[in-house]
Design a protein around this nucleic acid. Sequence first.
DNA 1: TATTTAACACAACAGTTGTTATTATAATTG
DNA 2: CAATTATAATAACAACTGTTGTGTTAAATA
Lengths: 216, 216
Amino acid sequence: MNSTARKSRSKPPASRGRPVGDREARRAELLDAAMSVIAQEGFAEASLRKVAERAGCTTGAVTYYFANREEMMAAVIESQFDVFDAMLRAGESDGRIDVRAGLKRWLDWLSSDEKGEWVANFQLLSLARHEPALAAVYKRRYAAYRDVFAAMIARGQRQGTIRRDIPAELLADQISAMGDGWMMLFPIEPERFQPNRVKALLDATMALIAPRTGWQ
Amino acid sequence: MNSTARKSRSKPPASRGRPVGDREARRAELLDAAMSVIAQEGFAEASLRKVAERAGCTTGAVTYYFANREEMMAAVIESQFDVFDAMLRAGESDGRIDVRAGLKRWLDWLSSDEKGEWVANFQLLSLARHEPALAAVYKRRYAAYRDVFAAMIARGQRQGTIRRDIPAELLADQISAMGDGWMMLFPIEPERFQPNRVKALLDATMALIAPRTGWQ
DNA sequence: TATTTAACACAACAGTTGTTATTATAATTG
DNA sequence: CAATTATAATAACAACTGTTGTGTTAAATA
């Protein structure tokens, strides 16, 4: 990715004639600002003006990088999936599959979430229903994620670390849905996701997908 | 002004001086209209004017029954939980516990959903994060639902129809979260919830919570 | 240096919003 | 009958909204 540091945190007098060439980086900055507003105040409150203010500029800058609000929101979603993808791939360490570690990293990220990013994601997902452009993004990227996850499960089954009586595709769907469900309730009841309970949930989930060894 | 402009969609001419005493019923009518608008056009589009129009009246009627929009939305959520509660209780037929039947009824309701009601619910839930009044409603009613569901699971465990190695409370949380997760993705990919796949998901879920008889 | 251009600021527009205040009317009641 | 009351229409409010068009400035280029 871009490593050329976009200088100075808040606002370098916001001169109009910026150095040219870092268009992508500047776009990402605006997306961060948008994400921040959505996370803190919700999608409905994320007006172009507010996003611009958070980014330290005016709507003129925002509309220069995005044709309209919908396009901006779609770009926000794409960028969030990029983050999620990276996390998922990090869980897939060469050869050995470790579903528990992956789930834990994900749950930890979820329950820390200082910036409230996933909350924003959740809201965007719910709104996609009535914004076809957003729905299209979700459909495409969710399908990709599901394929990867199902492949992980299948590998676990071949290695004998995951029960084989349920097809990998269905099992992946179940676990994935469980995660989504937790995500869904987290903003309402964050206190139910304390570390010890997260551990209990993880252990229980591992028990669910453990091979049926008939030990009991 | 000619007052014959009121075209009464299967309603009494909606005159201003209505028969007194059916306040609760009239309120429910407005809630239905609100739910309908949210379901079809989304929360953001559900303005007081649109709700009023759908109900065949003006905002004057709406603000007469609800102090403000937030209060109206909270009332919508309450009424939806009432529906859900009824469905849950119907699944608990005297003595014998039938989780599969309950899940199936729920999934069927989900995948039929002509009116898009649950989609509206989902959106309301996601927005509750930034509207404390709504969050309070969800917190209270979700807790009540979870208690009932956990009790169902516990009974199944005592009867030997559900595995005992996972505490009822955790198991209830897992299954409940799975349901929420499916709900979450349904609006994005309804085609993934065709009857045969619903059946497969149900069977797989029953396998997940089945007692460990060690048959394989 | 002169010119061009990328990167914005700024202002204005036409709508829409929740909310409140005022008024009208039909049902109820005395 | 008249008076009251519940129900609702109507109108006006200020606050925001996304979008567009027109400037403005500094960096890049020639």
